[in-house]
């Protein structure tokens, strides 16, 4: 019977060495809420598990020159409890907070959600919309890439065998900026997104959008950025015409499949619906209107 080794290194170098030297399949472990489930079902059979949680800095949130840096293994519950993050990035926080239940929140991470590379991952459209970057470490050293370069297909990432994500960086926030995330699920919780949408905007003092990023989940092999949808917002207030253009751009970008979670026709329509609803929340927040959480 093949063995399974587990290591919990206490430094980046040690972790990279373990990954580089592994024979067979090595998997990085953050919260384990995807990995352990996949191992139990027999879908993934790793020979080595490298747990990142003991590496200094992997768990925690800090501020650096006006931007937030989130350790890759920081659990959802910790992010949700961080007042600064909630104020600056309510969309990222609410997206991460949608993952699973209270129990899952104690473990699940942004890194795991991104690197599991599911097109339906909830925090990923919000991270894409936020313009977040991932700091990746590996045998060749350290590199910082936009998050949208990490997932490349269902279950696949651009990371090398000896690489892992160390932390995420969110850009500094200008005035009148905010974000939002909504997903559609047939139930009210504990479900997987049929469509997800994250939008981040900055407005001028008249409420006109100056910059925008729009991302959709569960409508393509990976989460996708939708520049046309962002373009529909920039230069406009959120009037009926803008909403209609946003809806159309989101629908046009949606290239989903028919599967047990939804039909193509339905997913395309809902992509447009969510884009409108999410934009409304993000605009409200950017103008200082108080909004509840997405769920």
């Amino acid at each position: 019977m093949s063995g399974l080794s587990y290591a919990a290194p206490t430094s980046v170098d040690e972790a990279v060495k373990l990954l580089a030297g592994a024979s067979g399949l090595a998997k990085v472990l953050s919260g384990g809420t995807d990995l352990l489930v996949q191992m139990r079902s027999g879908r993934v059979k790793p020979d080595l598990i490298v747990d990142t949680k003991k590496i200094p800095g992997l768990i925690g949130i800090r501020e650096e020159n006006g931007s937030y840096v989130i350790g890759a293994a920081t659990p959802g519950a910790m992010v949700e409890a961080h007042a600064g993050m909630k104020a600056a990035w309510p969309g990222v926080v609410e997206a991460l907070d949608l993952i699973g239940s209270t129990q899952i929140q104690g473990r699940c991470t942004l890194a795991g959600n991104l690197c599991n590379a599911s097109p339906a991952a909830d925090s990923v459209p919000a991270l894409f919309a936020a313009g977040a970057t991932a700091v990746i470490v590996g045998g060749k050293g350290r590199r910082e890439v936009p998050v949208e370069q990490v997932p490349v297909g269902p279950g696949r990432t651009s990371l090398g065998k000896d690489e892992f994500i160390l932390e995420f960086r969110l850009p500094p926030r200008p005035a009148r900026s905010s974000d939002a995330y909504l997903r559609f699920i047939p139930r009210t919780e504990m479900d997987i997104a049929v469509v997800g949408c994250g939008i981040s905007v900055t407005l001028d003092d008249k409420g006109v959008c100056t910059t925008a990023r729009v991302a959709l989940g569960a409508v393509a092999p990976t989460v996708v950025l939708v520049p046309d949808a962002a373009q529909a917002l920039v230069g406009h207030k959120l009037d009926a015409d803008t909403l209609a253009k946003l809806d159309a751009a989101a629908q046009a970008a949606a290239k989903p499949i028919n599967d047990k979670r939804g039909t193509i026709e339905y997913r395309v329509k809902v992509a447009g619906v969510l884009a409108r609803r999410v934009a409304a929340i993000a605009f409200d927040r950017a103008q200082g209107f108080v909004n509840g959480k997405a769920h």
Binding site: T188, D191, R261
Partner: peptide, 16 residues
């Protein structure tokens, strides 16, 4: 059967 689990065989959750 494509949905032999509670993720995709959707019984109501408490909040439904």
């Amino acid at each position: 059967m494509e949905n032999p689990g509670f993720l995709d065989y959707r019984v109501p959750v408490a909040s439904d």
